[in-house]
Amino acid sequence: ATNIVGKVKWYNSTKNFGFIEQDNGGKDVFVHKSAVDAAGLHSLEEGQDVIFDLEEKQGKAYAVNLRIK
Results as ranks from 00 to 15, higher is better:
Ala1Gly: 15
Ala1Ile: 13
Thr2Leu: 12
Thr2Asn: 14
Thr2His: 14
Thr2Gln: 11
Thr2Cys: 04
Thr2Glu: 11
Asn3Gln: 07
Asn3Ser: 06
Asn3Ala: 06
Asn3Asp: 15
Asn3Glu: 08
Asn3Cys: 05
Ile4Tyr: 06
Ile4Lys: 11
Ile4Cys: 04
Ile4His: 06
Ile4Leu: 10
Ile4Phe: 06
Ile4Asp: 02
Val5Ile: 07
Val5His: 15
Val5Tyr: 14
Val5Lys: 15
Val5Asn: 11
Gly6Thr: 01
Gly6Lys: 00
Gly6Ser: 02
Gly6Val: 00
Lys7Thr: 06
Lys7Cys: 03
Lys7Gly: 02
Lys7Glu: 03
Val8Ser: 01
Val8Ala: 02
Lys9Gly: 03
Lys9Thr: 03
Lys9Leu: 08
Lys9His: 05
Trp10Gln: 03
Trp10Arg: 05
Trp10His: 05
Trp10Leu: 05
Trp10Asp: 02
Trp10Tyr: 10
Trp10Pro: 00
Tyr11Pro: 01
Tyr11Arg: 01
Asn12Gln: 10
Asn12Glu: 07
Asn12Met: 11
Asn12Gly: 04
Ser13Asn: 12
Ser13Trp: 09
Ser13Lys: 09
Ser13Ala: 11
Ser13Gln: 11
Ser13Thr: 14
Thr14Ile: 12
Thr14Gln: 10
Thr14Asp: 13
Thr14Met: 13
Thr14Gly: 11
Lys15Arg: 12
Lys15Gln: 09
Lys15Val: 10
Lys15Ala: 10
Lys15Phe: 08
Lys15Cys: 04
Asn16Met: 12
Asn16Leu: 08
Asn16Lys: 13
Phe17Lys: 02
Phe17Glu: 02
Phe17Gln: 03
Gly18Tyr: 02
Gly18Val: 01
Gly18Trp: 02
Gly18Ser: 01
Gly18Gln: 01
Phe19Gly: 01
Phe19Thr: 02
Phe19Gln: 02
Phe19Tyr: 06
Phe19Asp: 00
Phe19Val: 06
Phe19Cys: 03
Ile20Ser: 00
Ile20Pro: 00
Ile20Trp: 00
Ile20Tyr: 00
Glu21Gln: 13
Glu21Leu: 14
Glu21Asp: 07
Glu21Pro: 01
Glu21Phe: 12
Gln22Gly: 08
Gln22Tyr: 15
Gln22Asp: 06
Asp23Phe: 15
Asp23His: 15
Asp23Cys: 06
Asn24Trp: 13
Asn24Cys: 05
Asn24Ile: 08
Asn24Lys: 14
Asn24Tyr: 11
Gly25Asp: 07
Gly26Val: 11
Gly26Ser: 13
Lys27Leu: 13
Lys27Arg: 14
Lys27Pro: 08
Lys27Phe: 10
Lys27Ala: 10
Lys27Asn: 11
Lys27His: 12
Asp28Tyr: 06
Asp28Ser: 06
Asp28Val: 05
Asp28Trp: 06
Asp28Ile: 05
Val29Cys: 04
Val29Leu: 04
Val29Phe: 06
Val29Asn: 02
Val29Trp: 07
Phe30His: 02
Phe30Lys: 02
Phe30Ile: 04
Phe30Gln: 02
Val31Phe: 14
Val31Ser: 01
Val31Pro: 00
Val31Arg: 00
Val31Tyr: 05
Val31Trp: 02
Val31Lys: 00
Val31Ala: 03
Val31Cys: 04
His32Ala: 05
His32Thr: 04
His32Ser: 07
His32Leu: 04
His32Met: 05
His32Glu: 03
Lys33Pro: 02
Lys33Arg: 10
Lys33Trp: 10
Lys33Glu: 04
Ser34Leu: 12
Ser34Pro: 03
Ser34Asn: 14
Ser34Gln: 10
Ala35Met: 07
Ala35Gly: 04
Ala35Ser: 14
Ala35Glu: 11
Ala35Pro: 01
Val36Tyr: 03
Val36Ser: 02
Val36Phe: 05
Asp37Lys: 15
Asp37Trp: 15
Asp37Arg: 14
Asp37Glu: 14
Ala38Trp: 07
Ala38Ile: 14
Ala38Cys: 04
Ala39Val: 06
Ala39Gly: 08
Ala39Asp: 02
Ala39Lys: 05
Ala39Ile: 07
Ala39Ser: 08
Gly40Glu: 08
Gly40Ile: 03
Gly40Asp: 08
Gly40Val: 04
Leu41Ile: 09
Leu41Trp: 15
Leu41Cys: 04
Leu41Asn: 05
Leu41Ser: 07
Leu41Ala: 10
Leu41Gly: 07
Leu41Thr: 06
His42Thr: 12
His42Met: 12
His42Phe: 13
His42Asp: 08
His42Val: 12
Ser43Lys: 10
Ser43Pro: 09
Ser43Met: 12
Ser43Ala: 13
Leu44Arg: 01
Leu44Glu: 01
Leu44Trp: 03
Leu44Met: 07
Glu45Tyr: 15
Glu45Pro: 13
Glu46Tyr: 13
Glu46Val: 14
Glu46Leu: 12
Gly47Thr: 05
Gly47Ser: 08
Gly47Trp: 05
Gly47Asp: 07
Gly47Met: 06
Gln48Trp: 14
Gln48Tyr: 07
Gln48Gly: 06
Gln48Ile: 13
Asp49Ser: 15
Asp49Thr: 15
Asp49Ala: 15
Asp49Gln: 15
Asp49Met: 15
Asp49Tyr: 15
Asp49Phe: 15
Val50Gln: 00
Val50Phe: 05
Val50Asn: 00
Val50Tyr: 04
Val50Thr: 05
Ile51Asp: 03
Ile51Glu: 12
Ile51Leu: 09
Ile51Val: 10
Phe52Met: 04
Phe52Asp: 00
Phe52Val: 05
Phe52Trp: 02
Asp53Thr: 05
Asp53Arg: 02
Asp53Ala: 04
Leu54Phe: 11
Leu54Val: 11
Leu54Ile: 14
Leu54Lys: 13
Leu54Gln: 07
Leu54Cys: 04
Glu55Asp: 11
Glu55Leu: 14
Glu55Cys: 04
Glu55Gln: 09
Glu55Pro: 02
Glu55Asn: 11
Glu56Trp: 10
Glu56Thr: 14
Glu56Lys: 12
Glu56Gly: 11
Glu56Arg: 08
Glu56Val: 12
Glu56Leu: 13
Lys57Val: 11
Lys57Pro: 06
Lys57His: 12
Lys57Ala: 11
Lys57Gln: 14
Lys57Cys: 05
Lys57Leu: 14
Gln58Cys: 05
Gln58Tyr: 12
Gly59Tyr: 11
Gly59Ala: 11
Gly59Pro: 04
Gly59Val: 06
Gly59His: 13
Gly59Phe: 10
Gly59Trp: 09
Gly59Asp: 11
Lys60Ile: 07
Lys60Cys: 04
Lys60Leu: 08
Lys60Val: 07
Ala61Val: 13
Ala61Pro: 09
Ala61Tyr: 11
Ala61Lys: 09
Ala61Leu: 12
Ala61Gly: 12
Ala61Phe: 13
Ala61Glu: 11
Tyr62Met: 10
Tyr62Ile: 06
Tyr62Pro: 01
Ala63Ser: 05
Ala63Gln: 00
Ala63Thr: 03
Ala63Phe: 01
Val64Tyr: 07
Val64Ile: 15
Asn65Gly: 06
Asn65Cys: 04
Asn65Trp: 03
Asn65Gln: 07
Leu66Cys: 02
Leu66Ser: 00
Leu66Thr: 01
Leu66Gln: 00
Leu66Tyr: 00
Arg67Gly: 05
Arg67His: 12
Arg67Phe: 10
Arg67Glu: 08
Arg67Val: 10
Arg67Ser: 11
Arg67Pro: 00
Arg67Asp: 05
Ile68Asp: 14
Ile68Lys: 12
Ile68His: 14
Ile68Thr: 08
Lys69Cys: 05
Lys69Phe: 06
Lys69Tyr: 06
